[in-house]
């Protein structure tokens, strides 16, 4: 007799636990307000990335097309995987002195691991992260970017 009661108890408890689970799932089924999917390409306009999101490394320029990079090469040394390559040139300043300046700041997005060491160690805060995350291109070569814009100059007062 005991064993029969035990047997029935087992069945009832088992079915009860299953019903409880089904209650949870069916509640979700009937509450479409809880859907978390974001319709991505449609919501592009309203999509705001968090401001610290590491999308890609950029070099902010001001409206006079000036940046802060002195071409010191510290970011290149600190990058763990050779993503950054600095090509510098020698310019002659107004007072006639020779000075090293940035020619090309090459950034290979395809290799970057977003460790933020370059941004953090740059002595003149010339680099920053942008929130752009749509990086897909048809050609790998397009991922090699030159961060200083053509014709840009060193910002006044940055050494």
């Amino acid at each position: 007799m005991r064993s029969i009661i035990e047997y029935l108890r087992e069945i009832v408890l088992g079915i009860w636990s299953l019903l409880k689970g089904m209650k949870v799932t069916s509640t979700y089924f009937f509450s479409p307000g809880k859907i978390v999917t974001q319709k991505y390409p449609e919501n592009r306009k309203s999509l705001v990335m968090l401001e610290r999101f590491k999308g890609e490394v950029v070099m902010p320029h001001n409206e006079k097309n000036e940046h802060k990079c002195t071409g010191c090469g510290i970011c290149e040394i600190n990058c763990p995987n050779g993503t950054i390559e600095i090509i510098s040139k020698v310019i002659i300043t107004e007072d006639g002195k020779k000075k090293k300046a940035i020619d090309k700041h090459i950034y290979r997005l395809g290799m970057c691991t977003f460790c933020a060491l370059c941004v953090k160690t740059c002595p003149s805060n010339a680099l920053a992260f942008s929130q752009k995350f749509e990086h897909a291109v048809f050609n790998r070569a397009l991922l090699n970017k030159i961060l200083n814009k053509p014709g840009s100059q060193l910002m006044k007062g940055v050494e």
């Binding site: 799932t25 069916s26 979700y28 089924f29 859907i35 999917t37």
Partner: peptide, 13 residues
């Protein structure tokens, strides 16, 4: 669609 709604998704759309 049913499984998507159960799982808080939209499913095929």
């Amino acid at each position: 669609k049913v499984c998507a709604f159960i799982q808080n998704r939209l499913g095929p759309n």
